[in-house]
């Protein structure tokens, strides 16, 4: 395996961690501050989960152009949802926007910035052919810290995805979601951060245990 493949893996992992940070913020708002996701917010969340699929496939199955292409498509879909929401609130004079602001921007604006950065970042990564030269079969065959971190991040995403899916049921049932869902606080603010940290620790344990089991085989 070449140094370029190793570097590409690190970049994919860093991108996943950045995206995990954005999702953690939105889950904290949902569970700790009682700001449930609106239907368009769910479209953006779906886009973020899809955006993570590309780098995860790169790490699990090897760096491939099609995985990056999928991530660009995911960013376009998620970005369409966030642009739609931004325009809706711009089009209505005096509209304060939906939900609280974080560092001066609403979450849908941050989501749009995230999707734009992803598209630009992946386009730049695609100009680097060295990462595709080797016949990379993914990180699972390479024991070490990177494998632990990759499994940890993938497990963390899975926990978030399961939590999001479960909490869609009380909000939307199996049909369409309400336009402006009622505020429901599940945890105190610190409790939500603790739950997010707990999910991280649980994921790290999963990463360490999986890595040691694979080593034994």
């Amino acid at each position: 395996m070449t140094t370029q493949v190793k570097l590409a893996r690190v970049l994919n992992l860093l991108a996943l961690l950045a995206l995990l940070g954005v999702l953690s913020g939105s889950l904290h708002l949902q569970f700790g501050q009682g700001e449930p996701p609106c239907p368009l917010c769910l479209v953006q969340r779906s886009g973020m989960i899809a955006l993570a699929v590309g780098p995860l496939l790169n790490l699990f199955t090897g760096i491939k152009v099609r995985n990056y292409a999928f991530a660009i498509l995911a960013a376009c879909v998620g970005g369409a949802g966030s642009v739609r929401q931004i325009l809706l609130h711009i089009a209505t004079p005096g509209d304060p926007g939906y939900g609280p602001k974080v560092l001066g921007f609403h979450l849908y604006t941050w989501a749009d910035i995230t999707f734009l950065i992803a598209i630009i970042g992946i386009a730049i990564l695609l100009m680097w052919p060295g990462q595709f030269a080797a016949n990379d079969r993914g990180i699972l065959g390479s024991p070490g810290v990177m494998r632990v971190l990759t499994i940890t991040v993938a497990a963390w995403y899975s926990i978030y995805l399961i939590a999001m899916t479960i909490f869609i049921i009380p909000m939307c049932g199996i049909g369409m979601c309400p336009a402006d869902p009622p505020e429901t606080t599940y945890l105190p603010s610190n409790g939500a951060w603790l739950a997010i940290g707990g999910a991280g620790i649980l994921s790290l344990l999963i990463g360490i245990i999986s890595n040691s089991r694979m080593r034994r085989r």
Binding site: S46, V53, Y157, L161, T165, I168, I169, I174
Partner: peptide
């Protein structure tokens, strides 16, 4: 919306199993 997220769960299973 629920079923879209259920679909993503299946996609994640596919990533773990490298399908």
């Amino acid at each position: 919306m629920l079923w879209i997220f259920l679909l993503w769960i299946i996609v994640f299973v596919g990533i773990f199993w490298r399908q």
